[in-house]
């Protein structure tokens, strides 16, 4: 098992290297950092000075090495637009994104898995047929359309939900501005979280249902029924436990998708998160922010993939004892 995990970690490191290289190219070669930092009216000598301070006169591999060294020390340079260290800029926005993703994913997992179990236990009921078609509908709706329609219905027509922002926030531990500790914050998170979570919910529902149906036809489940165990016991203790393996894998694998959809959702609801920051930085060609965002996303995705692989090994004895 340790060699299995070791291989996965190694693979993750290779990916991080590749992504850091791409980020380096975005950072160093796109746009014109010299022009941006020195200003349009700088003299030739001033420009040369900026070039040297950025290390653009050094050979390629030295530049990349310096970039990596700086990145490992948490130094990702300054934003071209706001002249603030990029890391501060992102760190300030991150709690909003994490809270939104957390609420959306929790909603998706709880609803998706319970509906999946329900349908697998009652495959013939009309409700199940309805849910199956509904879930197909759920994966056919683009995130941005869901968001806009929700705003139209709940904010504009009914006027019961706020359409943008995070609402009232409370700062905890001096750095984390949380919206989940106030009622107003929760009111603001519901629509964006539903928008972001709906696709995942539909997907997890279908995966859970498929995995449950497969497990429920296994011999040991028949044994469990034959022993006279209660329905709930069989469903949740015997079946769901084994059906969870593909579900957990899918949750981990889908996290990268969640980040992509989060950018769209944050943009629609003007949610002050990292995704919204990325989009604005792209519009404004603020490449240090873009490069840092890319590295950050890669770190999160690779870390989660390793976690999924390890939990996979724990859930599945076949891998654990190989």
């Amino acid at each position: 098992m340790s060699s299995y995990i070791g291989r996965r970690i190694l693979q993750g490191i290779v990916v991080l290297f590749l992504v850091s290289f791409i980020a380096f190219i975005i950072f160093q070669y796109l746009g014109d950092p010299v022009m941006t930092l020195a200003g349009r009216y700088a003299t030739q000598a001033q420009r040369e000075e900026v070039r040297q301070s950025l290390g653009l006169d050094k050979p390629f591999y030295v530049q990349y090495f310096n970039f990596l060294k700086n990145a490992l020390q948490g130094n990702f340079g300054m934003s071209y637009v706001t002249r603030v260290p990029v890391l501060d800029l992102i760190a300030e926005r991150l709690p909003a994104s994490i809270e939104l993703a957390f609420v959306a994913e929790s909603f998706a997992v709880i609803m998706g898995v319970s509906l999946g179990v329900f349908v697998s236990a009652n495959p013939k009921s009309i409700m199940s047929k309805f849910l199956m078609t509904g879930s197909l509908f759920g994966v056919s709706l683009p995130t941005f359309l869901v968001g806009i329609l929700l705003i139209y219905i709940f904010s504009i027509k009914l006027g019961i939900m706020p359409s943008s922002g995070r609402g009232e926030t409370i700062t905890i531990l001096n750095f984390w501005r949380s919206g989940l500790l106030t009622l107003d914050g929760w009111r603001h998170v519901i629509l964006p979280a539903f928008t972001l979570g709906m696709f995942q919910m539909a997907l997890l529902f279908r995966i859970t249902r498929g995995a449950m149906l497969e497990v429920l036809s296994a011999e040991y489940i028949r044994t469990a029924w034959a022993k006279g165990l209660k329905g709930k016991m069989v469903l949740f203790k015997h079946a769901l436990r084994n059906a969870l393996i593909p579900v957990v894998t899918m949750i981990g694998l889908q996290f990268g998708q969640l980040i992509g959809f989060a950018i769209v959702t944050e943009s629609i609801f003007q949610w002050p998160g990292a995704g919204n920051l990325l989009l604005n930085s792209l519009y404004e060609s603020d490449f240090p922010v873009v490069a840092t965002y890319v590295i950050m996303v890669a770190l999160i995705v690779v870390f989660l993939n390793v976690i999924v692989d390890i939990s996979y090994a724990f859930l599945n004895p076949k891998i654990r004892y190989k």
């Binding site: 693979q11 290779v14 990916v15 590749l18 975005i26 796109l30 694998l253 990268g256 998708q257 969640l258 980040i259 992509g260 959809f261 950018i263 769209v264 989009l279 792209l282 519009y283 060609s285 490449f287 873009v290 890319v294 996303v297 890669a298 995705v301 690779v302 993939n305």
Partner: peptide, 24 residues
């Protein structure tokens, strides 16, 4: 297969958005 795994773990939306956004 390894590069396939890697690409799949990132979001298609994000990759396309970055490519198109960067080159303007």
């Amino acid at each position: 297969m390894r590069s396939a795994d890697t690409v799949l773990s990132f979001s298609k939306t994000l990759i396309a958005m970055l490519l198109l956004g960067i080159f303007k």
